[in-house]
Amino acid sequence: ENVVSAPMPGKVLRVLVRVGDRVRVGQGLLVLEAMKMENEIPSPRDGVVKRILVKEGEIVDTGQPKIELG
């Protein structure tokens, strides 16, 4: 899985990584606000952040790609 998608609709509060960052499985990639709760979205695997496809403040839909890992 190279693309991390939104598990639920919500607002991107914070992006916790930058392009080029090495990430580990379970590491937080971003914080999504859904139903007035903050949810940290974890990396599904070890890898390197290739692209960030969302911006802080953006509203995302379920299944929308957010971060691409290499």
Rank of each mutant, 00 (worst) to 15 (best):
E1M: 14
E1F: 14
N2K: 09
V3Q: 07
V3P: 06
V4W: 05
V4N: 03
V4P: 04
S5M: 12
S5T: 13
A6V: 08
P7N: 12
P7R: 11
M8W: 15
M8C: 11
P9W: 12
P9A: 13
G10V: 07
G10E: 03
G10W: 09
V12L: 03
L13W: 02
L13A: 05
R14E: 06
R14Y: 08
R14T: 06
R14W: 06
V17N: 01
R18Y: 06
R18M: 11
R18H: 11
V19H: 04
G20T: 03
G20W: 05
G20I: 03
D21R: 03
D21H: 06
D21C: 09
R22D: 09
R22P: 10
V23I: 08
V23A: 01
R24F: 12
R24N: 10
R24V: 13
R24M: 11
R24H: 12
R24C: 12
V25P: 07
G26R: 05
G26C: 09
G26H: 06
Q27N: 03
Q27P: 01
G28H: 08
G28Y: 09
G28I: 15
G28N: 09
L29Y: 01
L29S: 00
L30C: 04
L30H: 00
L30D: 00
V31T: 07
L32Q: 01
E33S: 09
E33L: 15
E33D: 08
A34K: 05
A34M: 11
M35V: 08
K36W: 11
K36N: 15
M37A: 10
M37G: 12
M37C: 11
M37H: 10
E38D: 07
E38I: 12
N39V: 15
N39W: 15
E40Q: 10
E40Y: 13
E40N: 08
E40L: 15
I41A: 01
I41C: 10
P42F: 12
P42M: 12
P42T: 14
S43Y: 02
P44R: 04
P44C: 07
P44L: 06
R45I: 15
R45F: 13
D46S: 10
D46C: 11
G47A: 09
G47H: 02
V48F: 13
V48W: 15
V48Y: 14
V48P: 02
V48T: 10
V49T: 00
V49E: 01
V49M: 00
I52C: 05
I52F: 01
L53H: 08
V54H: 01
V54E: 02
V54I: 10
K55N: 08
K55Q: 11
K55P: 01
K55T: 11
K55I: 11
E56W: 08
E56M: 09
E56Q: 10
G57A: 04
G57R: 02
E58F: 05
E58Y: 06
I59P: 05
V60Q: 03
D61C: 14
D61H: 14
T62N: 08
G63S: 07
G63D: 08
Q64A: 09
P65F: 07
P65Q: 06
P65A: 12
I67W: 03
E68N: 04
E68M: 13
E68P: 03
L69S: 01
L69D: 01
G70I: 14
G70E: 15
G70Y: 15
G70A: 14
